[in-house]
């Protein structure tokens, strides 16, 4: 039998390896580093992990995260417009849009995108709650801020068909020129979209 780490370390490596972006070698390095850094370091990590389980909840309306027992900072904010809903793939996209300060409406986090080949169906995403919310708010516009890859576009098409019967306008983020740059750094496909979506000068 070949020599291996004791079982607890092996279990830790398996757990670390299952995280996105971590391969077997990184997982091994992290595990050994945690061992050498002493008990308290590992304890801090364990505490943090336990805390996200007990102290964080997902808002049932928008799908963003809150501390347990507190109202959702997005949904309960009276200053935000209630007739626009912006649909995004994941919670990180909410923060990205917020940093732009260009948007003051409601959000809806889907938690992924349709991908039949990876077995992600509408039931796995927060589609039902989107339909319900659009009717309850009631919203007059749904903005689709999803990726422009094949899965993102297909998800956008699906949602558009889903909410259009509710009588709302469905819009999509524009694609085109990056801010503050010349034509030289733009690839052809983006330029193609930018040309198609050109606007009259006022």
């Amino acid at each position: 039998m070949s020599l291996n780490y004791p079982a607890p370390i092996q279990r830790l490596i398996v757990q670390l390896k299952s995280l996105p972006g971590v391969g077997p070698r990184s997982a091994e390095r992290m595990a050994l580093w945690l061992l050498s850094a002493g008990r308290e370091r590992g304890g801090l990590l364990a505490d943090a992990l336990r805390a996200i389980e007990t102290e964080v909840v997902m808002c049932e309306d928008c799908g963003f995260y809150n501390e347990a027992g507190q109202a959702c900072l997005l949904c309960s904010n009276d200053k935000r417009q209630r007739h626009i809903v912006c649909v995004v793939e994941q919670a990180a996209d909410v923060l990205r849009l917020e940093r732009s300060r260009a948007y003051q409406g409601q959000y809806h986090v889907l938690g992924g995108k349709l991908s039949p080949l990876d077995n992600v169906t509408p039931e796995d995403l927060r589609m039902d709650s989107l339909e319900r919310r659009v009717a309850e708010l009631p919203a007059s516009e749904v903005i689709l801020a999803l990726g422009s890859d094949v899965e993102g576009e297909a998800t956008a098409n699906y949602i558009a068909d889903l909410v259009r019967p509710l009588g709302v306008a469905v819009t999509k983020l524009a694609q085109g020129m990056p801010a503050g740059g010349g034509l030289d750094h733009v690839d052809e496909l983006t330029l193609h979209h930018a040309l198609q979506g050109r606007r009259a000068m006022s």
Binding site: L114, P116, L117, T121, E151, N157, Y158, D161, L162
Partner: peptide, 19 residues
């Protein structure tokens, strides 16, 4: 993806197919 959805379910989910 479209072909996969067409084959996947007993009754075809046309909304997904159309997306």
């Amino acid at each position: 993806s479209r072909n996969y959805i067409l084959k996947r379910d007993a009754t075809v989910q046309w909304r997904q197919v159309d997306a």
